[in-house]
Design a protein around this nucleic acid. Structure first.
Length: 246
DNA sequence: AGGAGTGTTGTGGT
DNA sequence: CACCACAACACTCC
C-alpha cells in the first residue's frame, strides 16, 4: 500500500496518537530497540511521500513500507509478527509489518522538504518545474519516480499521469513544451488526490486507465509494456496517443 | 506452482 | 568516480 496517498490515509488514521504516551513497544525490528520507546510521548506524526515519520522527544522513527509493508491500527494480524508494535496509555495500538524502520537524527528530520511532497499543503509546483528544468536529459518516466521532485509518486501514479497528459514515458524532460511540463507537475498532484479518493472508496483499481492495462481506452489499440528508464520500472503506454518528445 | 510487483538500498563490476 | 546490474528484503495476488 505504499504510494503517497496511502500514507496520507495512514496519517489520518493516526490522528489520535500524537500527545499519547507509549506504554509498550516490541517487535522484530533490528535497527531500533523498542524498549527505548517506552515512556516517550508521541510528539507528532507526519508523512513525507512514502515515509511515515513518528516524532518522539528523544528520537524520530522513519518507517518505509517498501513494496510489501502493511499496518493495522487497534488490531493485529494473526499470521505475522509485527516489525514494530506500539501501544499507548489510552490503549491505542499501532502495528507495522514488513517495513523498513530506522531512527533518524534531528538534523535529518528537520531537513525534510515538504514542498516536494505531492500530498503536502506545502507542495510547490514551481519548485518542481525548476528541478525538472535543471535535468533536461532525464526521462519523463524517471522524473515522476524521483522522490526529490515528486515525493510520494509511485509506479501506478507514474503510468496514469503520463497517460493523462499524453506524454510518452521515454520523452526527455527538456524536450517538453512549457505547457506540457506544467501539465506534468499539475497532474502528478491531481492524480495523487484522485488516487486518494478512489483508495478511500476501495475503487482505485477499476479507475486505472493505463497501469497494468492491455488496451488503450482512447485508441482501442494494444498498450506497449516494458521496463523503462534508469528506474527500470514497468511502463504501459500507447504509441498513438502518447507523444514522444525529444 | 511460479512469478511478478504500488519500492529502496547496498554491493560489486565495468 | 560514474554508471550499471543485480540481490536482498518479504508479502499478496494472479
Amino acid at each position: 500500500m505504499p504510494e503517497g496517498p496511502s500514507l496520507y490515509i495512514l496519517k489520518e488514521l493516526l490522528t489520535d496518537f500524537p500527545g499519547q504516551d507509549i506504554v509498550r513497544a516490541d517487535g522484530n525490528v533490528r535497527a531500533v530497540d523498542p524498549a527505548r520507546l517506552v515512556g516517550q510521548r508521541i510528539v507528532a506524526i507526519r508523512t513525507w511521500g512514502k515515509h511515515l515519520l513518528i516524532e518522539l522527544p528523544e528520537l524520530v522513527l522513519r518507517v518505509h513500507f517498501l513494496l510489501f509493508g502493511t499496518w493495522r491500527i487497534n488490531e493485529r494480524r494473526e499470521d505475522k509478527v509485527p516489525r514494530l508494535s506500539i501501544e499507548t496509555a489510552a490503549g491505542d495500538e499501532l502495528n507495522l509489518y514488513a517495513c523498513a524502520i530506522k531512527e533518524i537524527d534531528r538534523a535529518t528530520f528537520e531537513a525534510y522538504d515538504f514542498s516536494a511532497d505531492v500530498m503536502s499543503e506545502e507542495w510547490d509546483p514551481k519548485q518542481a518545474r525548476k528541478k525538472l528544468r535543471a535535468q533536461p536529459d532525464m526521462l519523463a518516466c524517471d522524473a515522476l519516480l524521483d522522490q526529490d521532485i515528486f515525493s510520494g509518486v509511485g509506479n501506478i501514479i507514474k503510468n496514469e499521469v503520463l497517460f493523462r497528459i499524453r506524454v510518452h514515458p521515454l520523452s526527455t524532460v527538456g524536450a517538453l513544451s512549457a505547457p506540457k511540463l506544467r501539465a506534468l507537475v499539475i497532474e502528478a498532484r491531481q492524480y495523487s488526490f484522485d488516487f486518494l479518493e478512489w483508495k478511500r472508496q476501495y475503487v482505485l483499481k477499476q479507475h486505472w486507465l493505463a497501469h497494468a492495462k492491455r488496451i488503450c481506452p482512447r485508441c482501442d489499440i494494444p498498450f506497449h509494456k516494458a521496463n523503462l528508464g534508469r528506474s527500470n520500472r514497468r511502463s504501459f503506454w500507447c504509441e498513438r496517443c502518447q507523444k514522444r518528445y525529444g
